[in-house]
Amino acid sequence: MSSSFDRYQKRRLISSYFSVVISIALVLFLLGIVGFLLLNAKKVTDFMKENVNVTVYLKDTAKDVEIKQLEKSLALADYVKTTDFVSKDDAAEAMKSEFGDDFMDLVGYNPLQNSIDVKLKADFLTNEKLEELTALAQEKSFVDEVKYDESLVELINSNVKKISFWVLLLSAIFTLIAVLLINSSIRLSVYSKRFTIKTMQMVGATKSFIRRPFVWKSIKLGILGAVVALIGLGFVVYYVDKMFPELALRQSLVLIGGLFLAVFLLGIIITWISTHFATQRFLNLKTDQLY
């Protein structure tokens, strides 16, 4: 009978530990995701900015040497990231592959123009710099017009600060939630041992002696939960790097390593502090208050 009860208690204890580890892992995983977003927020906004296309359309009378000189002068500008010459034939092929129909069969000729696609560096994607680029290009007599999505530029610039603010706010909220959830899980685990704590106290054990095994057990659970969270976070980083190579995550291995270390240490620190205060609470309770 006693053996059966011991097995039941052991299964119950393992189940309790398992739930604590899963709770810690899930919370730390979400916290790691928020930290990952925070670290890469600037990269994402820069990526969006540097993919805004400014198209310089050229007249059919433009000579090859004039086009090359203009492209070179634009490429050498300190605010330009890349330039790419697109011939009217290449533009027609791209349109054909996109829409599936050869529109030249309908009109009988290629109405498109040669053009130079210009992408600016992220810090220079402003209306002032775009107007400067437009004025510089239109000084050339062989340039027909300069086009870009003005509303998109305004939208990106106006929302960058808002996005940064909300990411920071979400980080603070998730950190608070992480502390509260892990603290609740640890307190429930300690609560199940409240009678053991009081019994040890009644036979003369000091508070630090009683607290020590609970703290070490929780730290081990915190480490295990952090490892599980980091494995999940590692898969997310790998997937994002594979899907969006433009973010160049491999160039930020130090920052990502720092994030992983922070998540690992956070799992230890939160469980340590939570267990300390949880055991202290039950140590200070009177025997009749345990019920």
Rank of each mutant, 00 (worst) to 15 (best):
L136P: 00
A137C: 15
Q138C: 09
E139L: 13
K140C: 04
F142D: 04
F142S: 13
D144C: 03
D144Y: 11
K147G: 06
Y148Q: 07
Y148R: 10
D149F: 06
D149C: 08
S151Y: 05
V153T: 08
L155C: 00
I156F: 00
S158E: 06
K161Y: 08
K162I: 15
K162C: 02
K162N: 14
I163F: 15
I163R: 09
F165A: 14
F165H: 03
V167P: 06
V167C: 11
L170I: 15
L170E: 06
L170R: 09
S171F: 05
A172P: 00
I173E: 02
I177T: 07
A178K: 09
N183K: 06
S184W: 04
I186Y: 07
R187Y: 00
R187G: 02
Y191K: 12
Y191L: 12
K193W: 07
K193G: 05
K193D: 11
F195D: 02
T196S: 11
Q201T: 01
Q201F: 01
M202K: 14
A205M: 12
K207G: 13
K207I: 03
I210R: 12
R211Q: 15
R211P: 01
P213K: 06
F214R: 12
S218K: 07
S218H: 03
I219D: 05
I219L: 11
K220H: 05
L221Q: 13
G222E: 08
I223G: 09
I223Y: 06
A226K: 05
V227Y: 03
V228T: 10
L230Q: 08
G232K: 02
F235E: 08
V236Y: 04
Y238T: 15
Y238L: 13
K242D: 09
A248R: 09
L249E: 03
Q251N: 14
Q251W: 00
S252E: 13
V254C: 06
I256R: 08
G257Q: 04
L259T: 06
L261P: 03
A262E: 02
A262N: 07
F264R: 13
F264N: 14
L265V: 14
G267A: 05
G267K: 06
I268K: 09
I268T: 08
I270M: 03
T271Y: 07
W272C: 04
W272L: 13
I273A: 14
S274T: 07
F277V: 04
A278E: 03
A278C: 02
T279N: 10
T279S: 07
Q280T: 08
R281K: 15
R281E: 07
